[in-house]
Amino acid sequence: MALYVYAIAAEDHPLDIDDLSGVGSEPAPVRGIASGPLCAVVSDISEKIRPKRRDLSIHQEVQEHLMRGGPVLPLQFGYTAADESTVEQVLLKNADGYLANLERLGGCAEYHVRASQDEEELLRQILRETPEASELNERIRAGDRDPQLPMALGQLIAAQVQERQDALASGLVAALVPFAREHTVRQASGADFLNFSLLVPDDRQEEFRTAEANLARQIGDGVEFRLSGPLPPYSFVE
């Protein structure tokens, strides 16, 4: 029977998964498969697993449950193996790399930071603080029909938005990175101008959360901070 794989841990990880059920329409018990110095946490499946809300939630719950017992290498949602033999072979083949990763990630959790900015508030700031933009805007509002004005104003505003958000993102990253052992910055999407993850040691997590809360207050109106964590260190598994 095919297996859904949640995570990899050291063979001496306590697991404590006897009461957990896995993903799928017919959830099977979550269990461990030991191979050499490692253990994979799996459950039997009889169907193709799709990213439904229930299964995404169970995947996350298993990961977070395992984290409480020690370091794990969390797999992204949807990883499956043909059978136990396949899992055992993978664990043996990659044992050195997995063990090194477990050592590196031990005593840490991932925090994910996103930030977005209210577009209307940002536009008001730009028009208030940028004389050239303010002048162009006043000319358009006064009825100047020069067809180049809207394009010039749009380009100026777009450049200002990019410049201001890049500077703000850099400042936020610089302020939070000292609390992390590692970090990774991703391309922001949608309304977000910042999207990055930090690997924060357990003994610095309270400091980190305090610093993040202080930053959110200092930035003021118009910027929304969204902090997720502590999470399994998905972003830092190599």
Rank of each mutant, 00 (worst) to 15 (best):
Leu3Lys: 11
Tyr4Ile: 02
Tyr4Val: 02
Val5Ser: 01
Ala9Phe: 02
Glu11Met: 02
Asp16Ser: 10
Ser21Gly: 11
Val23Met: 04
Arg31Lys: 09
Ala40Asp: 09
Ile45Arg: 01
Glu47Pro: 09
Arg50Phe: 09
Arg53Thr: 00
His59Asp: 01
Gln60Trp: 04
Val62Trp: 05
Val62Asp: 00
Arg68His: 08
Gly69Trp: 00
Gly70Asp: 08
Pro74Asp: 10
Glu84Leu: 01
Glu84Gln: 12
Glu84Asp: 07
Ser85Thr: 15
Leu92Val: 09
Gly97Pro: 07
Arg104Ala: 10
Leu105Asn: 07
Gly107Arg: 12
Gly107Trp: 12
Ala109Leu: 00
Asp118His: 10
Glu121Leu: 12
Gln125Pro: 03
Ile126Val: 12
Arg128Ala: 15
Thr130Lys: 13
Glu132Arg: 13
Ser134Glu: 14
Glu135Val: 03
Arg139Ile: 09
Ile140Gly: 06
Gly143Leu: 15
Arg145Ile: 02
Arg145Gly: 01
Gln148Arg: 15
Gly154Asn: 00
Ile157Gln: 09
Val161Ile: 08
Ala169Lys: 13
Gly171Lys: 13
Ala175Tyr: 02
Ala175Cys: 03
Val177Leu: 00
Phe179Tyr: 15
Phe179Pro: 06
Ala180Asn: 11
Thr184Met: 12
Arg186Tyr: 12
Ala188His: 13
Gly190Met: 05
Asp192Trp: 03
Phe193Pro: 03
Asn195Leu: 00
Phe196Tyr: 13
Leu199Glu: 05
Val200Met: 09
Val200Phe: 02
Glu206Thr: 15
Glu206Leu: 12
Glu207Phe: 03
Arg217Trp: 00
Gly220His: 06
Val223Ile: 03
Glu224Gly: 05
Ser228Leu: 13
Pro232Phe: 07
Pro233Ile: 04
Tyr234Ile: 11
Phe236His: 05
Phe236Thr: 03
Val237Phe: 12
Glu238Leu: 11
